[in-house]
């Protein structure tokens, strides 16, 4: 039962990820990416990491993807304007990605170590690994300093985004013809 759900979710996430990079209009890509994130969140639920699944749905599928959708609509990219890369470049990109995949999977098959460590984990599996309680304890005791630093990172990102997005009045406009 659980394993068939895993394979179904894996199929859905691979298919939608392929559609993200293959679909013509950016809006379709964003919507497919939302489905990919939902299937990955379902994988997290299967792995007993409910908190991470909630964060993935709220932060990624909720906030970040809405931001992407907002930018796509703001820039009016919905029309399929994209001048396509040369077919050879596309071909080379696909070949390079496929070679990377084959290399990584070959490296995985070359090392037979993983199975043993998995068996060790199964014997001592604690059901409370991914609960909010354990995660919070670990986050606020061992990883308190990185947590606080990440809030500073957020402040820097916020200021940077506002500064970049601000319209400059005095600077001369660079027009498309010039470039």
């Amino acid at each position: 039962m659980g394993s068939s759900i895993f394979y179904f979710l894996g199929f859905v996430s691979i298919f939608t990820a392929l559609m993200v990079i293959l679909s013509k209009s950016p809006i379709n890509s964003v919507l497919y990416l939302v489905i990919t994130f939902f299937s990955i969140a379902a994988q997290f639920v299967l792995l007993n990491a409910g908190f991470l699944a909630a964060v993935l749905v709220i932060v990624y599928a909720g906030a970040i993807m809405v931001l992407f959708l907002f930018v796509v609509m703001l820039l009016n990219l919905n029309k399929e304007y994209e001048p396509h890369k040369h077919i050879y470049i596309k071909f080379a990109g696909g070949i390079a990605g496929g070679i990377l995949l084959v290399t990584l999977i070959g490296a995985l098959h070359g090392s037979g170590e993983i199975a043993d460590s998995t068996l060790n984990g199964e014997a001592s599996y604690a059901a409370s690994t991914g609960t909010i309680q354990n995660l919070g304890k670990s986050l606020f005791s061992d990883y308190l300093l990185p947590f606080e630093i990440s809030s500073v990172l957020f402040l820097a990102a916020m200021v940077g985004a506002v500064f970049l997005g601000k319209k400059e009045k005095s600077s001369p406009k660079v027009s498309a013809e010039k470039i």
Binding site: S13, I14, A17, L18, V20, I21, P26, S29, F68, V71, V72, L77, E82, P83, H84, K85, I89, K90, A92, G93, G94, A96, G97, G98, L100, L101, L104, I105, L108
Partner: peptide, 20 residues
């Protein structure tokens, strides 16, 4: 996750749209 990562790399190499 290797397949998903390779799809991401392929997307970076193949597309010209910065948002994609």
């Amino acid at each position: 996750s290797t397949i998903l990562f390779a799809i991401g790399v392929t997307g970076v190499l193949m597309r010209r749209n910065a948002i994609i």
